[in-house]
Design a protein around this nucleic acid. Structure first.
Length: 339
DNA sequence: CGGCTATGAGTAG
DNA sequence: TACTCCTAGCCGG
């Protein structure tokens, strides 16, 4: 259940663990038979674009490159997909063990060395296993796992808006796209053609920080405001990519109304469990906080279905006419998001 | 055990 | 808008 920051972390993990190596690829589950076609190829690159992951594979050195050009394993985790990394036996000191994606027991938490060998037998649901010199990665539950050539990869990129986590992103594409449509801003932010990488959490939180009613038509917004939203989102997602956790609350707001015990179901994040992390119940303004008081005004946070997904918002802070345009200027993410 | 839920997205109508 | 697909944890009976 990743948003874009998670996929960028995945690309980094693949680069760290497999780049430059010949890898074994297989489909224990059998539903990705194309894995056999690139088995033993060299992973030359791992790249994230929005929520899409591309693993570039080049033929082994003893194969004529002319007849076997680079292929891309394209993975989209969807709602349930997950990658689980493991260090191979004998590869002590390899730093990578974690699961990224849907909630999973973190590999490496099992102390018993004998149980590790058991892990080497893939679970029957593993769609794709990638194995390198010192690590392996198992993929389960993806919404997409396919082998593409350059053209196939390009077709996917052509349908994606700018990705705030990529240096080559053009914010103006986002701004103009939002402004030219009557579609509600809450719907537009979930459209990957408008901006690539936002999911349901960043949508809800970005709208709160912009003090925007989710139902406002995009074309009713001002260009400077939409530009501000891009800058805000870029900082928030950079924090997410660095830490593995989505945190959108200004430190000054984290404890407001916090005496209310938040027993809403856990939103499992993908951090490495570092000390000093912002607790989940302080991380969001509105996501999964329906029926709880707004951190700023105390009004009950609401939730509703919007184009098939649940949107969360504060009906007072995010009223159309009471927008405080200066919120992200008064509480810039850059102030508490280091580097 | 069954039912529900979840940070997603494509397709049909 | 409604249905479809994918997986696993959790909760109630």
């Amino acid at each position: 259940m990743p948003e874009g920051h998670t996929v960028h972390r995945l690309a980094a993990a693949f680069t760290e663990s497999f780049a430059g190596q010949a890898v074994r690829t297989s489909s224990p589950q059998g539903r990705f038979p194309e894995a056999a076609a690139v088995d033993g190829w060299v992973m030359t690159c791992a790249e994230a674009v929005g929520k899409h992951l591309f693993l570039a594979l080049a033929p082994a050195a003893d194969v004529d490159p002319g007849e076997a050009p680079t292929r891309f394993v394209h993975v989209h985790l969807g709602l349930y997909g997950s990658w689980t990394f493991q260090a191979l036996p004998g590869a002590e000191g390899v730093v990578l063990p974690h699961a990224i994606g849907a909630p999973r027991v973190r590999v490496g938490e099992t102390e018993d060395p004998s149980s590790r060998a058991v892990d080497l037998i893939p679970r029957p649901t593993v769609r794709l296993r990638v194995q390198g010199r010192s690590a392996l990665a198992d993929l389960t539950g993806p919404t997409a796992c396919e082998l593409l050539d350059h053209a196939g990869r390009q077709r996917i990129l052509d349908r994606l808006g700018p990705d705030p986590l990529r240096g080559d992103a053009d914010p103006e594409r986002f701004v103009h796209r939002v402004l030219r449509s009557r579609t509600m801003i809450g719907t537009q932010l979930m459209n990957q053609e408008v901006v690539a990488g936002i999911g349901n959490i960043y949508r809800a939180e970005l709208l709160f920080r912009a003090m925007l009613d989710p139902t406002v038509p995009g074309r009713d917004l001002s260009a400077p405001l939409v530009h501000e939203m891009w800058e805000d989102l870029s900082a928030l997602m950079a924090y997410g990519a660095r830490t593995g956790r989505i945190v959108t609350t200004d430190p000054a707001h984290r404890h407001l109304h916090a005496r209310i015990i938040e027993r809403s179901r856990g939103t499992r994040q993908n951090s490495d469990g570092d000390a000093g992390v912002v607790p989940r119940e302080e991380s969001f303004y509105v996501y999964h906080r329906q029926t709880l008081p707004c951190r700023l005004c105390g009004t009950e946070v609401r939730s509703a279905d919007m184009a098939g997904r649940t949107v969360f918002w504060c009906p007072r802070c995010q009223r159309v006419r009471s927008r405080r345009a200066s919120f992200t200027r008064e509480h810039p993410a850059a102030a508490w998001i280091g580097s």
